[in-house]
Design a protein around this nucleic acid. Structure first.
Lengths: 221, 221, 221, 221
DNA sequence: TCCTAATCGAGACGGTACGTCGCGTCTTCGC
DNA sequence: GCGAAGACGCGACGTACCGTCTCGATTAGGA
């Protein structure tokens, strides 16, 4: 055993720096975030920050992955509904006052920073999208989700429209648009034969036995 | 009449700066772009750049909107197919060696820069998405696209998955995934009764009377 | 005759620029004077200023030499007294609110600008010190001033202490100090036998040893 | 104990910057001196220079006061002679190749920069003129210098002509002029009864008309 | 009466220096 | 050895003026 000589690192420092980072991210955004400011606000020397996080990106990703809890699998019995709930949850977080904008900012910054992108993927996205993958797999297994689509493609179809909307316009779907979009995505990924509309009932009835018919508009005849 | 006093601005300068900006964007990305470097590479004084574009964002958006041609309406007769072609075209551009990555970078940077975002929206996105809107409207009119979806929602559904994929993973769908995703989106937005697969015929027959049947896989029991 | 074709230069412009220069000199000092500001304040294009005065120095010296009237020879009959009056007058002007500080500033600036120094000498100082030289010569001729001192040395002795004081300390002699200094300089340059103190009488009656001669121009013999 | 936290400032940097400043002052004069150039020539970052000397003036005055040694009191026994020696020394330095012109330039620049002037006074002039003041006081005490003149006035009389000459004309007295001027100043400030001419002999043997008296204090009749 | 040419304002242009900010590294002290 | 404090070389920022250069519009002569 080496035995770790000298003064051990202070956990309080870690905490202070992370808090400072979150505060500042919320306040000035990713591009306005400065190691200098972080250190100052944490009451810490700049080299102390660098000692733990060699780059701003490391710091931010680390802080984010610690601050944002992993999504929980709703597991209502209906995998399609689970997906919708997860998507809804994702959207909620993206828009939420706290870390939401920060996550977006970092995603944005990652675009032309492959370093950041991969670290983000590894430390933040994968753990979080894992649940989605599981739910999708379950959906395929239980015959609720089409089996001719790659898992990642389904993910893109579920999250893409929603993220795209927020990223580009900053605005978000209203209640009606959201319902329509949800139904549309369901059409895109639901296995053939699955009823077109999700049951609006809050605690989704178990499935397997498909609801007989529930079209929105009248049939074309 | 006003008569435009003083020495007129040199078009050559505009050109040189725009070229330099594109070059550097491709080389070092948005976050690595420096007005200083732009001016140097354009053989121009720094103040000259600032005189025309007060901020880096102004410059970049202006350059992009000038450099990227607006999408043309394919108008094959089948609006659904038109949408697919447009999406395909958008994807192509996003990935393309030239401005593609640049556009992505700027989109990313815009996330936590509302200023940039709105300028981008106004000068870059709207003109380009306009075509998409028209095609969608035509689709609705001709009964190829559902009429219970807002135009912007459809846009999100068409572009979202694709952009999300590129933005987040940097990777892109392979041929098969692309086909599957395309079909899925079609399911999401096609009007009821419209055949599931797009007719591969290049110059789509006019619509109204929906093509009777054209499934890819067998019907769902 | 060439005949000077084209539009003649406007005298109004000359005037406006000179006024602007004086104003600004008084306001911001020599080192704070900018051609830009001069032009703006004169309501004139910058090139118009450059057309007439190639450098800031040219402009300033020209303006000064036009603005500050040449000292008049008091010619009281007593050359020593004349010198004192002249010195007094010089001091007055140096301290005066208007051009005084400006002259000092330019003198100061001239120190490490030989160009400016020589132009200043030629256009400003010489004409003004000429009178002093004449008075000194007259003093020597009339036996009031020592003849073993070079004219320029006398000039240095008369003006030096006074200018030095103002230049370095900004402060100026009070009444008593001034009288004492005047008397001291008189001791330094007065011909032997001339009474030590200047008569305090306002309209200098000759003193003790009256000046032998009083003519201004007639031959000495 | 304060304990002086953080990395101490490098003496090498001080030294390098001061050298660079002196070099450049000698080369391009005060008005041509650039912080940028100083930093470059010292091999130092610009902010490092600003950290120590907030303004160009601070830098220059500091450098000068460090570079020019304070005059030593000759103390030959004859205060009048001491004054002449000091004046001579001052002149020498003003004209000397090294800092001489620099001092002049700064003096000049100080004219319309009260900030600079007061700093110059405080950090440069007073320490240096202190000796002069002491010698003058001694002269008064020993009866060699008139007691009806303020110390500062005497200083003006001693240094004024000399500085005036150098400042304005750049030229300097030749041997004869210098002797004459010296004698003149002596007349101006010597106590009554003191022999008129200073002994030009290097080690002050009395000359021509040897001063009858050489006592230090007694009254002249 | 036109023509021609210099001058006027305005302001763009390539530059240089400004003084500031943040970077990431280093060096010192005191726990 | 860690941690704060902060100096260091560096590079970019956005601004102010520089002195030169086009411009269109005056404004006189001379033809």
């Amino acid at each position: 055993m080496t035995g770790r000589r000298g003064r051990p690192r202070s956990a309080a420092v870690d905490w202070a720096v992370e808090q400072a980072t979150l505060d500042l991210l919320a306040r000035v955004g990713y591009h306005g975030l400065t190691i200098e400011a972080v250190a100052a606000r944490a009451g810490v020397g700049r080299p102390t920050v660098y000692r733990r996080w060699p780059t701003k990106d490391d710091l931010v990703v680390d802080v984010l992955s610690r601050a944002v809890p992993v999504l929980a699998d709703p597991d209502t019995g209906d995998a399609l509904r689970d997906l919708e709930l997860l998507a809804s949850e994702v959207l909620e977080r993206l828009v939420a006052a706290g870390v939401g904008p920060v996550v977006l900012a970092v995603l944005g910054a990652a675009v032309d920073r492959p370093e950041l992108a991969s670290r983000l993927e590894e430390r933040y996205l994968s753990p979080r999208l894992g649940v989605l993958g599981e739910v999708i797999a379950r959906g395929v297994r239980t015959g609720r989700v089409r089996d001719d689509l790659d898992v990642t493609v389904i993910r893109d179809l579920v999250l893409g429209p929603l993220v795209y909307r927020v990223l580009l316009s900053g605005r978000v779907w209203d209640r009606a648009e959201r319902a329509a979009a949800t139904a549309a995505v369901r059409r895109a990924i639901a296995a053939p034969g699955v009823a077109e509309d999700a049951p609006p009932s809050p605690a989704g009835k178990p499935v397997t036995a498909p609801p007989r018919r529930r079209r929105r508009a009248s049939s074309p005849s």
